[in-house]
Design a protein around this nucleic acid. Structure first.
Length: 557
RNA sequence: UGGGCCGUCGCCAAGUCAGGUUAAGGCACGGGGUUUUGAUCCCCGCAUUCGCAGGUUCGAAUCCUGCCGGCCCAGCCA
């Protein structure tokens, strides 16, 4: 239980920054996390947040949160709000909260300058024509007939585009680069398009909106970003990023560096696919605990530090990769093992009657709240003649390696007594309704004075004080590691991704803990109360199960 | 088939730019120990080999050449 923070992981971006600082290329670094406010953040965004904010933090620089809000038809203030919350929840504070839309006027000035320098022109072809004249991967494009308009005409047309004189699609502003470029992004890319749409921040003041490529590099430059970190698919855009900055006089020329995006096994992160699952009712919403969105992980019980640890563990490279769920699970188990107080809860109860325990007697037994951390204190657990244990902890005809309860077997009830099963009671259908057991009064607390050992220790709750609860046991959403490449996404869904246990029982101590406390129900896993939970109707989400070696052995044999 | 990028253990990933003896670490897996959670924790094992084939060199995962495999790009999306 050391609290030494894990060593910083070295990677190529960290090394570039170290070199730039050492060479005094930059006295200090500035990064930015630039989401488009058109959806909720997910675990993939966490990697980028961790990288951008992490590098700034590690080197004493700044990281801005910048909304890349250049497309009014897809963006909403609601998403921006949620993104701010999620970044904060992950544990980060931005240096400045920025919006690309804050730069619309400056961007427009830069566009004017590009036109004056003869590097941009207004094209009046329709989008269909622009597409068909762009060429293909192997053939060059052909010049627009409007490519050689005079600067004056371009300026006039662009001004009228801004003034809203034209309908959408009538004209666009294009960079004048090279229709024969091998890199398709350099074939006179569109810089501005006409959109008569309400923008969530600028309202109807603009009827032209800048494209990503024009906006991003200049926004970075305006903010003094030194290292513009983005994912691999923008690699082909870097020449354009540099071209725009090289053909204007921006305050600085940031360096774009690309890294591979995160993909996780057994899940999907694309907005389109998540939306589909929600719309079809396969999950409850954007914060359904089975989803990889940050809101969902939070609801499920993941801690911000466990997600940061996950991001640290996976590293940063340019290699396409798919991370195993085990890594995510390991990070939350590690965090919660250290911090979660322990309690007992029985998910699928079977009654136990201690035939030799006095009627109407009860007592309180002391139990530590954490087996390795005494500072977490102890609690009193009520015990009595009638108890409940886990149905799966009893087998009438057990295999040899089963050292839980069985007829004639003696086991320990954790922090309580040794008990021995004497009799099995069944109802008319043959269902087990109760186990009649005897207890050994000499073993109070869980140790036998004569030194005899038992192999099994079971969790339990007392019948008259246990608190009813519902538990939701989550598992991977899909049954295949790469659902996104499945022909039919929904066919790959794991039908057991959420198992609701309705008749669970929790020891009464639960009422002493704050509702969002992440706890370990011993031998079961880590849980926390769901948003739907109330003191009258407790509902728990299982964040992660415990490692289960017995289950592994059982399956193997 | 144009351009860009990538290939080190089942999954991640150091190391590659400035070649130097037996290729970090994590997850997973296997074995053992401690244990009142079959949890945790601790120990041990886990790539004679770095996509493949040649070449340079006293010496190559690192340099050169040629292959093979994978990802991305033809939105007035980001």
């Amino acid at each position: 239980m050391s609290d030494a923070s894990p060593p910083a992981v070295t990677h190529f971006i960290r090394r570039i920054i170290e070199e730039d600082l050492a060479s005094r290329k930059h006295p200090r670094i500035v990064t930015r996390f630039p989401p488009e406010p058109n959806g909720y953040l997910h675990i993939g965004h966490a990697k980028s947040i961790f990288l951008n904010f992490g590098m700034a933090g590690d080197f004493g620089g700044d990281c801005n949160l910048r909304f890349d809000d250049t497309n009014p038809e897809k963006e909403e203030a609601e998403y921006a709000q949620a993104i701010e919350e999620d970044v904060h929840w992950l544990g980060y504070e931005w240096h400045a909260l920025c919006h690309a839309s804050d730069y619309f006027e400056q961007l427009h000035d830069y566009a004017l300058e590009l036109i004056r320098r003869g590097h941009a022109y207004v094209d009046s072809q329709d989008s269909e024509t622009i597409r068909s004249t762009r060429g293909t991967l192997t053939e060059p494009g052909i010049n627009s007939p409007y490519r050689d308009r005079s600067v004056e005409e371009n300026l006039d047309l662009f001004a009228r585009m801004r003034a809203g004189e034209f309908k959408e699609g009538a004209h666009v502003l294009r960079a004048r680069i090279d229709m024969g470029a091998e890199n398709i992004n350099m074939r006179d890319p569109v810089l501005y398009r006409i959109r008569h749409q309400q923008h969530h921040r600028t309202g109807d003041t603009w009827s032209i909106y800048p494209m990503y490529d024009f906006t991003h590099c200049l926004s970075d430059a305006i903010e003094g970003v030194t290292h513009s970190l983005c994912t691999l698919e923008f690699e082909d855009h870097r020449p354009l990023y540099d071209w725009i900055l090289d053909h204007l006089d921006p305050p600085c020329h940031p360096q774009q560096i690309e890294f591979s995006r995160l993909s996780l096994e057994y899940t999907v992160v694309s907005k389109r696919q998540l939306q589909k699952l929600i719309a079809a009712g396969h999950v409850e919403g954007w914060d359904d605990p089975r989803l990889p969105t940050l809101r969902a992980l939070r609801r499920r019980g993941y801690t911000p530090e466990s997600i940061r640890e996950f991001c640290r563990a996976i590293g940063v490279t340019k290699k396409d990769s798919r991370i195993s769920m085990n890594v995510l699970e390991d990070s939350i188990r590690d965090a919660l093992n250290r911090s979660a107080p322990r309690l007992m809860a029985v998910l699928d109860p079977v009654r136990v009657i201690l035939t030799n325990y006095p009627e109407d007697q009860s007592e309180l037994l002391e139990a530590p709240n954490h087996p390795q951390d005494e500072s977490m204190g102890t609690r009193q657990v009520p015990f009595g003649r009638e108890l409940y244990i886990e149905r799966s902890d009893f087998m009438e005809d057990p295999p040899k390696k089963f050292f839980r309860l069985a007829p004639g077997h003696e086991v320990r009830l954790r922090y309580a007594y040794f008990i021995t099963c004497q009799e099995v009671e069944r109802d008319a259908n043959g269902e087990i309704v109760a186990l009649r057991c005897t207890y050994d009064p000499e073993t109070r607390g869980g140790n036998a004075p004569d030194g005899r050992k038992v192999r099994g220790t079971l969790h339990w709750v007392a019948a008259d004080s246990a608190v009813p609860a519902q538990m939701r046991l989550y598992d991977r959403l899909f049954k295949v590691p790469e659902p996104a490449s499945e022909p039919e996404l929904t066919a790959a869904l794991n039908e057991n991704s959420c198992i609701e246990m309705e008749r669970c029982l929790v020891e009464p101590e639960i009422h002493e803990l704050p509702p969002r406390t992440r706890i370990q129900f011993e031998r079961q896993g880590y849980f926390c109360q769901d948003y739907d939970s109330s003191p009258e109707q407790l509902i728990f989400n299982r964040t992660a199960s415990l490692r289960d070696t017995w289950e592994k052995i059982r399956k193997r044999d």
